[in-house]
Design a protein around this nucleic acid. Sequence first.
DNA 1: TTCCAGGTCGTTT
DNA 2: AAACGACATGGA
Length: 268
Amino acid sequence: MQKIKVKNFSLKHTLESGQVFRVEFYDEHYYFIVGDKVLKLKQEKNILYFSCSKKISKSFIRNLFGLEENYKAIIKSINKDKFISSAIKKSYGIRIIRQDPFECLVSYICSSNSSVKGVKRQVDNLSRRFGKKILFDGKMFWSFPENLGNIKELKSCGLGFRANYLHQAVSDIDRKGLVSLGKMPYEEARTELIRLKGIGPKVADCVLLYSLDFMQSFPIDRWIKRTMQKNYFCSKTISNRIIEDFARNYFGCYAGYAQIFLYQFRKF
DNA sequence: TTCCAGGTCGTTT
DNA sequence: AAACGACATGGA
């Protein structure tokens, strides 16, 4: 295995945060499927060990986990009060992973009214059905599909009503179109995403945050809504619009990092 | 059995 | 603009 020196990074917190769905832990190692590659990872203190089913560089890993970012500066910018401070302490070292935009879009369309476990199951089924086999480390994996099937085939992967969403969304935007959103202003890119079937404000914000580098994005799911209302609005019922405006204004341009800490801390 | 899950859609106030 | 029920599926 190759080694990378890391600072202010927790592989465990990052991979177990629920931002990615294609990761398994066994025999003391994480197996993380990224596009057409399988990464095997292990962290011991400030050393990150890795191997891969294909040849990759250390900079691939650094870019994937955002290790070049000034973590302390990010934390400082969002650390506004006692509550978020506790949330940061609990999951310190978590990083926002730079996902492939297409995979991210597909995964989060599958997330609507589902559970993290449910999304994993759906994405795994899609990959087994439409992806390619990867034999690595004596185990079989499946790459994330480049193309998906018709609605009937999608339903056979257990997507339920999301099959229609996904089919329409991917027929209205391709990888190129997705990547081009990254050059637009945040609000504009978000509006374009929401135009797609099955993508509302929450899924759009996840795609923007987890795959297109929009760190100001603050996805509001049922958990974030609950914890924000409870801890920042005296337990009152508040519209997502108000919560969202507050969060971006309060936490600043790295509100997305605040969101991911708060999500990990949602039971409090 | 009933309830809930990283929401969104279409319809109705 | 805001509120509301439906929507497939699987796990607890």
